[in-house]
Computed example of a mutant assay.
Amino acid sequence: MSNVKSRRELYSEATREALLDEATRLFAEKGFADTSLDEIATASLLTRGAVYHHFASKKALFEAVLDRLGTAVVQRVTAVAAQFQEPVVAATAALDAFLTESCDPVYGKLVWQEGPLALGWEGWRRCEHEHSYALVEAFVLALMNNGYLERKAETTTIRLFYEMIGGAGLAIAEADSADKERVRSECSDVMLRLLAGLRRAE
């Protein structure tokens, strides 16, 4: 079977991407509650019906926005870490890359501030878990497998690292623009010192 997409499929994909672009911009500017589907449709040069063709609701559209943002960040963080073979260096580079991504005002606002409001606490937690938990798990297990961290309480250790990294993302998102770099630096310093403190004794 041919994998060549039809003109209709290409148009549908382009329309969906345009919707996500405009939705991302408007949600970041106005927030989820104060952004309507009509506004997004108008900004995308589409009808409301065309929006509903791709997304069943404003909530579904917002979730797709978060999915795209989260997927892109995970890909970039993974690419940075892949440049290093030593697990602790790779993990440190990944953390640095994530904290840098969290300084982006659009990512910070939509993922950490608007997400829980738009999707509800459980829906937002599920969305975040799907994107980033496996990545954190992979780094922690690599540190354990290579003897940097003691292989003890694996699930709890992974969960605490995951929550700590999420807390850093939220702290950066909530900081004023002028303070984001300072908060980012402080989060990095604290987490790296905690990681060093957990290092397995030789």
Rank of each mutant, 00 (worst) to 15 (best):
S6W: 08
S6Q: 13
S6M: 11
R8P: 06
L10I: 14
S12K: 13
E13F: 03
E13Y: 04
E13M: 13
R16V: 08
E17S: 07
L19Y: 00
L19M: 08
L19K: 02
D21Y: 03
F27W: 06
A28Q: 11
E29C: 06
K30Q: 14
G31Y: 01
D34W: 02
T35W: 00
D38C: 10
S44T: 12
T47A: 14
T47C: 10
R48M: 02
V51N: 02
Y52V: 10
H54K: 13
H54C: 06
A56W: 09
A56K: 15
A56N: 14
S57V: 10
K59H: 08
K59N: 10
F62T: 09
A64I: 09
L66R: 06
L69T: 05
L69A: 03
L69H: 02
T71N: 11
T71P: 01
A72H: 13
V73A: 14
Q75R: 15
Q75W: 02
R76K: 15
T78K: 03
A79W: 02
V80Y: 00
A81K: 00
F84M: 05
Q85M: 05
P87W: 01
V89D: 12
V89N: 08
A90T: 10
A90Y: 00
A91H: 02
L95K: 07
F98R: 15
F98N: 14
S102T: 13
S102L: 04
C103Y: 00
C103W: 00
P105D: 09
V106N: 04
V106H: 03
Y107P: 01
L110I: 11
Q113T: 08
P116N: 08
P116R: 05
